[in-house]
Amino acid sequence: MIRQIRPAILMIIVMTVITGLVYPLGMTGLAQLIFPHQANGSLIEKDGKVIGSSLIGQNFTSDKYFHPRPSATTEPDPKDPTKTIPSPYAADNSTGSNLGPTNQALIDRVKADAAKLAKENPGSPIPVDLITTSGSGLDPDITPAAAMFQVPRVAKARHLDADKLRALIDAQTHAPLLGILGEARVNVLELNLALDGVK
């Protein structure tokens, strides 16, 4: 029995070397060689500056841009580091709201957001993803329905024809792979980049 102690200690060291150093470092080397763009976070650059990642959602608040979903991410309160304050799309602290379906706080949040959204597109039903937070708080996508819902606001702010925006959304919509895998989605950052190019 006691004879098993020595292999136990040696085995954890050997396995740490193989699976904890050689494997991840080797994969990192390979990845940097073959797929450098993906391996470094699918970053998007504009004029030589990183403006974000195509995979990570970022916050938009201006009327001139399409908005992402609400996000539950937080950051430490600068006044009191033991507390946190809301900080949507904080990509160094992913989290969902974890509010249960019967939680008053969830319904209060939805109520407040719904009131705001109703003003920008009166009378239209609000697509559910536009009023719920994602699991990561970093969802880069909205549904085509949520993009269409925002057309009147963006069209007004940019003095653009609504039909032009609808065509842009259609062009930016990623259909499910082979028609069956995943859900139809619009990447908000890519949509807004394309939007900046529309005259």
Binding site: S97, L99, V128, D129, T132, S134, D141, E183, R185
Partner: peptide, 10 residues
């Protein structure tokens, strides 16, 4: 029920 879910997964 999209609370806590990602759009790409639904």
């Amino acid at each position: 029920n999209m609370e806590g879910k990602e759009v790409r997964f639904g």
